[in-house]
Design a binder for these strands. Structure first.
Lengths: 224, 224
DNA sequence: TTTGATTCTAAATTTAATCTAAAGATTTAA
DNA sequence: TTAAATCTTTAGATTAAATTTAGAATCAAA
C-alpha cells in the first residue's frame, strides 16, 4: 500500500512512517500544505493521513483539491483538538475517518485498516487499455484475455504506466513512485531495466510495442 | 536537469554543484544578485537554488523577476535564519520549498527531487509555433502534423530555440544551456554544428528556413 | 526454519546517440 | 579579389544507454 503522510511535526511524522513501513508499505511525506496538495493531486495513494493543522494552510484545502481531482484515496484526518465543527467539516468534505491528538499508533493503524477494508480506496475499479485489462481489486492484469502472472513490482509498474500513458517517465520518476522517497538514497536505478524487461516479456512476445523506450529520457506507454 | 545555484558562499556553492553534477545534472552558478536575475530571466532552468541573503541584494527580488517573466523553474530558497516571515514571504512569492542553513546535501537533494517531481510530472505543456508543435508530456515534436524522431539533444535544442525565438543564440550560450558550465572546459563547440545540421534535416527538407544562421554570432529561430 | 518466489546486482552484449575529424562551401573583411 | 574565418556536411569512431542473462541476496509463505 502507498501512503501519504501530511504532518509537519517531524517526530510524529517519522513515527507514523516507521510504523507503516514495518509492514512493507510505501510512505511519502509532506510537511506543508503546498507539498501535500501537489503530491495528492499527482500521485495515487491508497490512504492519505492528513493533519488539518498544518502551519502553512488548512488541511481541509487539501481535501477540497482531492475532491476536485476525483482522487479516490482514503483520507484520515488528524486534529489537535476534538472540536466537533472541525470533525464534521472534515467528514463532510470526504474524509473517511478522524483521529485526535494524541493517539497511539496502534489506534491509527486500526483506522487505516478499517478504511482500507471498506474498500473505498481502490474500489472495484477495472482499468482498460486496448488489449490490456486490469482488475485492481484482485491485482490481476490480463492481456488478450489471458492473465499474465505479474509479480508485485511488475504489476505496480504496469499500473503506473497505464495511468500515465503517453508520458515519458524517467527511471528516477518510476523509482520514486514505486519505491517511495527512499529511492533518493539509491545510487543506481539500473534494476529498473530488469523490471521493464520482465514486464515486457510477460506482456506479449512483443511487449516492447507497448512500452516504448525514449532513449536518454525514459520510457513511455503507447498512447494509442 | 539544469540548475542555477545562486549562492555567494563559494564553499557551499561548490559543494552543491559537485553534489548535483555527480548525478549527471547541469549546473550554472551565480554569485550575486545581478548575475542571478539575469541568468534566471534569460535561461530556462529546472530548479533554481537561491540564497535569499546574497550580499548584493535580496534574493526575493530575483523571485519577483522570475514571476514577472513567467519562468517556471522550481525555486528552493536557502536562508541563514529560520524566521517564519522570510519563509512565508518566500513561499508567497512563488518559491516551492525552503531550507535553512546549515543543511545536509542529502536533505537539499530530496527537496530538489520533490520539486522536480511536481514540475516535470505536472507540466504537460504544449508548445506551438507555426507548423511546429511540441508535446512536452511525451517529449515529441511534430512538424506539419508528423512526428519528427528527435534524439534527446535535438529535442532539447529545439525546445531551447523555440522558447528563445527571435533571439540570436551563440554556440557558447547553446552549449552552456544544453551541456552546462562544464562546456567552458570544452576546447571546441564544433559539435554544435552537427546537432544543428541534424535537427534542420529532421525538421523539413528545408529546416534552415526555421533555424537561421547569424554568421559570426550564432543561430536564431525565426521570429514569425 | 526451510523452501520457493521475488527482487536486485553484476556483467556481457547490443543498440543508439554523440562527438571528432576532415573536406567542401559560404561569408566576411582586408 | 582573395585569404581567413566561419559554417555545412558526411562518415565513422567513441561513448553512453538500454537490453538481456544468470545468479546472489532478500523476502514471504508454509
Amino acid at each position: 500500500m502507498k501512503y501519504l503522510i501530511a504532518e509537519d511535526e517531524i517526530d510524529l511524522q517519522q513515527s507514523i512512517v516507521t510504523y507503516l513501513q514495518r509492514d512493507g508499505n510505501i510512505c511519502e511525506v509532506a510537511s506543508d500544505f503546498g507539498e501535500a496538495s501537489e503530491k495528492a493531486a499527482i500521485y495515487d495513494y491508497d490512504v492519505i493521513i492528513l493533519d488539518i493543522n498544518l502551519v502553512s494552510g488548512s488541511g481541509l484545502d487539501v481535501l477540497k483539491t482531492l475532491k476536485k481531482e476525483k482522487k479516490k484515496a482514503g483520507v484520515i484526518i488528524i486534529s489537535a483538538n476534538n472540536s466537533l465543527t472541525d470533525k464534521l467539516e472534515g467528514l463532510d468534505l470526504g474524509a473517511d475517518d478522524y483521529i485526535t491528538k494524541p493517539f497511539h499508533l496502534a489506534e491509527l493503524n486500526s483506522r487505516v485498516n478499517a478504511v482500507l477494508r471498506r474498500g473505498k480506496y481502490g474500489g472495484d475499479e477495472i482499468m482498460e487499455f486496448n488489449e490490456i485489462k486490469i482488475d485492481t481489486k484482485s491485482r490481476t492484469a490480463y492481456i488478450e484475455g489471458k492473465a499474465m502472472a505479474l509479480t508485485r513490482k511488475e504489476y505496480d509498474l504496469l499500473v503506473f504506466f497505464i495511468s500515465n500513458k503517453g508520458r515519458v517517465l524517467s527511471k528516477e520518476i518510476i523509482a520514486e513512485h514505486l519505491w517511495g522517497d527512499d529511492s533518493d538514497l539509491l545510487d543506481s536505478f539500473d534494476f529498473i531495466y530488469v523490471h521493464i524487461n520482465n514486464l515486457r516479456k510477460k506482456m506479449t512476445s512483443e511487449g516492447a510495442k507497448y512500452i516504448k523506450t525514449a532513449y536518454g529520457s525514459g520510457y513511455k506507454f503507447i498512447e494509442d
